[in-house]
Design a protein around this nucleic acid. Structure first.
Lengths: 348, 348
DNA sequence: GGAGCGGTTGCAAACGATTGTAAGTTACAC
DNA sequence: GTGTAACTTACAATCGTTTGCAACCGCTCC
């Protein structure tokens, strides 16, 4: 319980001495190198393991890293952990990585190129074995360059030329599900509160809306689309008013590009004395944690963020194992969560 | 642009050769050791720095760590990053650490002792220079033990004997602010929907309620307190009904131990045909991101989570710099955010 | 002119693990 | 009885950096 050398951690040499073998034998016995089983006698191995446990031995990863060049560490670059999108993704990454003894080094860039460069430096000099990149900057050239040297997996962002492995959610498919959902409920005048068009999310979701309307044989009228400048309730409210108060026939359903915008739609409906879902059905996007707390609970599109993390980690591990593994680009489908804002017979 | 040895990173020896000096001189010139300025001629130093930059040299942290025993890495142990409480804290930690060239290694324990042990092992064997611990388990004995070997800072949790540096929000003060707030608005029958009493948060908040009621000269009636079994809207609703429907005189204000519970109170009020804030005022706790989206917007107590991270990092750095630095225990005060659920003349 | 002294730089030994290769053992077959 | 193969284990070099110590240089001062 009170081992004598409590102050300094036991090294592989201490174990070797205690077991009466050479350090190299201990190293092989612990088999963290990989080719453990064959190179050392079963009994010796058992003895070593026992003694190592007794001495509370833990290999010094820095030493191993120096020797092998493998840090068992993966850098994760993201704009801002505070964005609720990311925690589940990071969780997914960590959970999968933990299975293989990898650990995550976080770096927040705030979408600031300079800070991003600094953080990247820090990660690289710590010898990360791979990089998971979720920063949104458009020019990924530096990562293309880097990806020749170490495995890189992109998250929520694919390069157009698809030369880099990536995992993303299928936003277009998400909006299409939303539109189809209200269509099936009988709605034909389906409006869209679009997000900021300078963000990829805003653009993609708008595209999805247009695509699905087309598929359903509905025409996209200008008066049925309003572009929000921000993902905020206020902008959502403004857009909803515009859509609902125009001279044209009123829409009976609104597909919002985001839950925040959907909340704004609620406020607008309320102000105009309209009911949801009776007068106007509303569909949000993202299924934020509070979506089911609204009244009525908001029908929304949920993304498997945790899964994204899981898959990205999987991809990383595959490529670490075999750097020439095929470059995969994975799209994860979203899920439609139906709640009271589109169906009167709501659950709960 | 296309340096010859692009595949292997330049080492300190490469720089030395290019500069015509000994590696040790380069090491000193780069001065990452600390005592840079004095030991090497200014001109030589300039030349070395220039060449190092040209060669795109980045020190191998693993090697440095092995030699110096300092990894410039801090482990952060928390139950679940997905809990919205944590991202801002982690952000705060990272931001402060980044200033000093430290980086954060995350470990999620899920409040599972076994997993926690495993994660801790992983962090320790990676030679973290310090630990920030936010896991909630009651027995911190292992950390007390550990804290003799490396700096440990506790977050949102202080040991009763205060032998460990820690940063926490002052929950008791928070509830007191909430109670005082409604008192000032004229309420005298102030009820409390308490959180689970087996969680420190639940207990502390309950204590705060009792303390402030006492200070205000109000008696705490049993019928004015209801204990929720979970931090969920359903439990909040159950408790609110119990408080509002009992045989006793109805409370005019409810201080909930958590925003989730407060949402439950909303639902109960709605079901009973009562209005908020006219009939009953409600105060939440935590100021969750959705609190201002509710109708009416929820008055709540906001905690400076980001600040907690900042302060914790500061504490860690202080103790790394001087392990015998005094043990500080920092309480950060919360902030009362007044919204529509307590005042009819609500902002927005 | 030699001792002493800053100011610089080189030398070499670490840090703790991994791993190719050599050496030792045993058993077996010829 | 020895050659061979299969197993085990020991040896020693190595990863890239830091750092105590020695060495060197050009001075000044006695």
């Amino acid at each position: 319980m009170n081992s004598p050398q409590r102050m300094r951690r036991a090294t592989i040499r201490d174990v070797a001495r205690a077991a009466g073998v050479h350090p190299s034998t201990v190293s092989r016995a612990l088999g963290n190198g990989g080719q453990a089983n064959a190179l050392v006698n079963a009994e010796t191995r058992a003895r070593i393991l026992r003694i190592a446990a007794e001495l509370n031995f833990r290999p010094d990863i820095a030493a191993r890293t120096l020797k092998t060049g493998q840090s068992h560490t993966v850098g994760v670059l993201l704009p801002d952990l505070t964005n609720p999108l990311f925690p589940p993704i990071v969780r997914g990454l960590e959970d999968r990585f933990a299975e293989d003894g990898f650990v995550v080094l976080l770096g927040n860039t705030d979408d600031d190129a300079q800070r991003g460069e600094l953080v990247l430096e820090g990660l690289l000099s710590r010898g990360v074995d791979a990089l998971v990149v979720a920063t949104a900057r458009r020019d990924g050239t530096q990562f293309l360059e880097l990806s020749r040297r170490l495995p890189i997996v992109l998250i929520n962002r694919v390069f157009d030329d698809q030369l880099v492995p990536s995992v993303a959610t299928d936003e277009v498919a998400g909006v299409r599900m939303a539109v189809e959902h209200v269509y099936r409920l009988g709605h034909r005048r389906i409006a869209h509160v679009a997000g900021p068009q300078d963000l990829s999310t805003g653009r993609n979701r708008y595209r999805g809306y247009v695509a699905e309307m087309g598929r359903l044989g509905l025409t996209v009228e200008d008066s049925m689309v309003c572009r929000a400048g921000l993902y905020s309730p206020d902008e959502g409210s403004r857009c909803a008013r515009e859509l609902l108060q125009g001279p044209h026939e009123r829409p009976t359903a609104i597909v919002a590009a985001n839950d925040m915008l959907a909340i704004g739609c609620y406020q607008a409906l309320h102000a105009l004395g309209l009911n949801c879902p009776e007068d106007v059905a509303i569909v949000g996007f993202n299924d934020a944690p509070f979506s089911d707390l609204l009244s009525p609970p908001l029908t929304s599109i949920r993304f498997p963020h945790y899964q994204v993390g899981l898959e990205a980690a999987q991809l990383v591990l595959e490529r670490i194992g075999d750097p020439s593994a095929p470059i995969k680009v994975i799209f994860l489908p979203p899920e439609l969560v139906v709640r009271g804002s589109t169906c009167t017979k709501s659950t709960t």
